[in-house]
Structure formats: C-alpha cells, structure tokens
Simulated assay, not measured.
Amino acid sequence: MTDTVLDDLKKQVEALTVELAEVRHVARLAKDRGEVENLFNRYMFLHNAFQDEQIIPLWAERGTPGMRARYTNAGQYVDYDSIIRYHQGRPTPTGKLILHATTTPVIEVGSDETAKGVWIMAGTESGLTDPEVAKDSPDYMYSPGLVDGKKVWAHWVWCKYAVDFIKQRGEWKIWKFRCYELARAPFEENWVSFGEKNQHAFDLDLMYFGDDGKAVFMPPADEPAPEHNHPYSPRTQQKLEPAPPAPYDVFEDTFR
C-alpha cells in the first residue's frame, strides 16, 4: 500500500471521526430535548390529576443553587421547602376540574447540562363552592344558578410558562419555574370585559380553591417579585414575554 493511499485513508478516518462526534452531539441534544419536553408534560398531567405530591421528585435536589418558583406578583420562592410547598397537601375536591393543555414549546439545550423552555397553555378550571364561602369572592367569578346547592365557577384560562432545567445524576429536573397568567374568563363571559375586572387577581397570593371552594393561599414569599406581570387588559398591548430561548452553550438567566 502506497504512502498516498495511506494518507488518503488517514484523512478519511479523521473526517469520519469528526462526523461521528457531530452526529453523537446532535443525537444527544435531540434526546435531551425529548426528555425535557416529557418532564414538563409529566408535570402537567400530574397537576391536572391533583397528584402534585408526585411532582416534587421532578424538581431539582434540595440545596441546588439558583432554584426558583414564581406564580403571581406576590413574590417568588427561592427556598426548597417553600418551592415544594406549592405541591404539598393539595386536596381533590368533588366536582373540581383542571385541564391545562400545553402547546407551542420552544426548547433549547445547552452544552452545560442545562435547558430552557417556554410553553403556551390553554385550559379550563372549574369547581363548586359553598354559598357561604362564595360570599368572600366577587359574584362575577361565578356562573348563574346552583349545582347540588353550591355556586359554580367555570373558567377558561390561558397562561404562559418559562422553565429552566438542570440535569442531575443523569436525569433532567425542574430548576427555575415561572407561570404568567395571560387571561381568563368565566364560561358565560368573554375575556375582554372580564379582563378589566380581574386585573387585581394576579397580585394576590392565591394558591388554589380547596374543599367547598375555600381559597388556600401561598406561604409568605421568600423575596419580592423583581417586576410585575399582569394578565390581559383591554387597555394594554401584548409583549413578547417570555421571549423564546435562543440556542446557547452556557446558561444565562433570561426568564428572571
């Protein structure tokens, strides 16, 4: 075999080695992206079924630097125990329905075992409230009439999610979580007229409606919200928030 042939073979092997490394990198990114999307979808399936205790293991480990959760303008949670408090002790009230369907994901995976994703959610939320309990809430939150002697709340709801993920011990985990409520409306009313009435709601620390429709509030926030987000109003313009993540190598805190 001549030196020329050996040189050609060597060049081909080097080229194939580079190509194989690139293919492995692309395959790894695709696998990671799929695992991240499955993780968030699993979160939503569990949340819809009131199985939030099973969501706790989906979060990063206790002591992970930079953990964060934020749901309203009332503040954000940066301590592990206050973060998982959102998922502890949730009841499964009779007649209550949550159906949040997420869509339009944009997911980017970094080279540093982190990932970023945004989603849009469209869904329904409904339940029954004891009339005495309902007196503590505005009447426009409820539908006309009673079911089984209780007031009915049945809402369309739209949200956006911005979530950062981190890989720990070979598994992807939720690291930083933010929910932006975009709009909601009772079944009988459009979201434009209701949006004007409901601007104050995102400043409250409401966590969920429990048994008999009783409001359950979040624990005190660990720190103030850096800035405020408000749901749709007929007097405001829409903005690109959160911005879909761009491809990246090293994590930047873009959803803060």
Rank of each mutant, 00 (worst) to 15 (best):
S111E: 10
P65I: 03
L46V: 08
V36H: 06
A74Q: 08
R42S: 09
I55R: 06
N38R: 10
R62Y: 13
E61A: 10
I55E: 07
T92S: 15
T92L: 03
G95H: 13
R33C: 13
I107P: 05
Y77W: 10
T72V: 05
Q54I: 00
E35M: 09
I84G: 05
D52E: 11
D79V: 12
Y80V: 08
R70V: 15
A101K: 14
T94I: 15
T72N: 11
G63D: 02
I84L: 07
R70D: 06
P105A: 06
I98T: 15
N73V: 03
Y43C: 01
L46C: 04
N38E: 13
Y43I: 01
F45C: 03
A69S: 15
L46E: 06
W59D: 00
L97S: 14
P65L: 03
D79Q: 13
V36Q: 07
N38Y: 08
A74M: 03
N73G: 12
H100K: 14
Y86L: 11
T103G: 00
Y77A: 08
A74C: 14
L97W: 12
H100S: 15
G66D: 13
D81Y: 05
F50H: 14
Y80K: 04
P91M: 10
R62M: 11
L99H: 14
E61Q: 09
N73E: 09
Q51I: 01
P57H: 06
R33I: 08
L39A: 04
N38L: 07
V78T: 15
G34Q: 08
W59P: 12
R85V: 02
L99S: 15
M44D: 02
D52H: 07
G63V: 05
T92I: 01
E61D: 13
M44C: 11
Q88E: 10
G75S: 08
A101F: 13
D79F: 04
I84D: 08
M67H: 01
I83M: 04
L39D: 03
I56Q: 05
A101V: 15
V106R: 11
A74R: 11
R68H: 10
G63K: 05
S82N: 14
L58N: 09
R62G: 02
Y43W: 13
E37G: 00
T92W: 00
R33W: 03
M67C: 12
A101R: 13
Y86I: 02
G66T: 09
T102S: 06
H47W: 13
Y71C: 02
G95V: 07
D52K: 07
T104V: 07
F40L: 10
G63L: 01
F45G: 02
P65G: 09
A101P: 00
P91D: 11
A49L: 12
T64C: 11
N38S: 10
N38Q: 09
A69C: 14
G89S: 00
N41I: 00
D79S: 14
F40T: 04
R62K: 13
T72H: 11
H100W: 14
F50E: 03
L39M: 02
G95Y: 05
G89L: 06
E108R: 12
V36R: 05
S111Q: 09
I83G: 03
E53Y: 00
Q76L: 13
F40I: 10
M44R: 01
I107Q: 00
P57Q: 12
M67F: 08
P93T: 06
T104I: 05
D81F: 04
R68D: 03
D79T: 14
V109L: 12
G75I: 04
N48L: 08
R68C: 10
I55N: 04
Q54K: 14
